[in-house]
Simulated assay, not measured.
Amino acid sequence: MTLASHVRTLGRGPGRSRSLTQSEAHEAMTQMLSGDAAPESIGALLMLLRMKGEVADEIAGFVAAAQDNLPALPSIDLDWSSYAAGRTRGLPWLLLSAKLVAMNGHRVLIHGWNGADPAIRTGLADAEIPLVEYMNDIAPALDAHSIAYAPLEILHPALFHLLGLREKFGLRSCINTVCRMLNPARAAASVQGVFHPPYRELQQDAAAKLGWRNLTIIKGGGGEFERTPSKPVAGFGLREHLMWEQNFAPLITETTRLSDGPASDTTLRGLWDGSTTDMFAQNIVIGTAALALDTLGDGDALNTAHSLWDARRAR
């Protein structure tokens, strides 16, 4: 079956078109990643999905095909996706949160692409998180640091190409959601941020169809997995394969936007090494780490995150 046949399924018109099944979506993504599909068909399929609105079966099929297109990766405990553009947020405090989780003995793989925004890639050096340049660098980085950042263009060049079509379309496509859900090492726990709240349920449902075990999705700062400590946060996802939702109370009483909270002179390195004190930024880091630890099954995640923060410079 050609990609054009899947375009026809989506675009026959009112009363005749329908969504793709999970197996059809898997086949369509396999063709798009192969490099053999006509670019016109790829563009038509992705834009028809955008107009229709993708469903969980389609996302699950696309994700499974994208995973099948990857080589075997070393075992990790926590998958952490980072695909927001960062226009509505400040520094990437989430990097320090991920580092706290790694300090607790969990192997963490961050993967992502953030468009023209350099904040995440620049922040890696300040957070002392290794940025891998080749696939073979992932295992040594994890063995040495328990954490690594794998750029999508290195991790999955074919998927990166599809994501880059956004510049030609002028619109996002469902590939953004597929990237967030890539979970390249097939970890048992994953954390994801979204900018638009409806995607929380979509990704939750797709993960359930894929048989994932533990997942937390939040509407985070700029679309990243990063919580605002002055607001309640609604978590969606899975716990031990079952649908899960939980509301988390604010950590502080002041009402402040994420991008306005930390002082302008607070840096990732300064906050980590203690040369700068910024309680708002500190609560972003601790609160985000707590959500990740909860995903990993820590029954006292917030207290664990506080203890890790207090002990960070002794390690």
Rank of each mutant, 00 (worst) to 15 (best):
R89V: 11
S34G: 07
T88F: 12
D273L: 05
G170Q: 06
V233N: 04
L91F: 00
R180D: 15
G164F: 13
A263Y: 03
M51S: 13
G123M: 09
E201P: 00
K168I: 13
L45F: 06
L142M: 05
H6N: 12
L302N: 01
H156A: 15
D205Q: 13
G222S: 08
R121F: 09
G222Q: 11
D260E: 11
A301E: 10
G223Y: 02
L131N: 08
S173V: 11
T288C: 01
A38C: 14
L45T: 09
I217Y: 00
V194P: 15
G13Y: 11
A234G: 08
P92F: 00
Q31K: 10
H156E: 07
A292V: 07
L202E: 12
L162V: 12
L215Y: 01
Q204Y: 01
L142T: 00
I147L: 08
E133F: 03
L238H: 01
W309N: 11
I42W: 14
E245T: 15
I110K: 03
K219Y: 00
L49P: 00
G15A: 11
A85P: 06
I76W: 04
D300M: 04
S264E: 13
G170T: 08
F248N: 03
T256A: 07
T253Q: 04
W93F: 05
M29W: 08
T288N: 05
A148E: 07
A263W: 01
L124R: 05
F248K: 08
E128T: 08
A158P: 02
Q204D: 10
S41T: 11
L3R: 05
T304A: 10
L94T: 11
L3A: 13
G115D: 06
A290N: 04
S230P: 07
D310G: 09
N183I: 05
A66G: 07
L100A: 04
R107D: 06
L210G: 02
S307P: 01
D294V: 02
F62Y: 12
R172T: 14
D294S: 03
G170W: 06
G237C: 10
I129N: 12
G43D: 15
E224S: 14
I284K: 00
W272C: 13
D265Q: 14
A98S: 07
D117G: 12
M47A: 14
R8S: 13
M103S: 11
F195N: 15
F248A: 12
I110L: 11
S34N: 07
T2K: 15
F62E: 06
P39M: 10
A292W: 07
W93S: 04
S34E: 05
G211N: 03
M243E: 03
A139Q: 12
M51V: 11
T9Q: 15
V132N: 06
P118W: 04
S97N: 04
L109G: 03
C174D: 08
D260S: 09
I110A: 06
G261N: 02
T2A: 15
S81P: 03
A56H: 08
K209L: 15
F280M: 14
A60P: 09
S75G: 04
S146A: 12
A290W: 06
D310V: 06
E133H: 09
T30Q: 13
P74Y: 09
K168V: 11
L293Y: 04
W309P: 15
G237W: 03
M243F: 10
H196Y: 11
A84V: 14
G61S: 03
A290Y: 07
T88C: 06
D117P: 11
R172C: 10
W113K: 02
S34W: 02
D260Q: 04
H145I: 03
M279I: 14
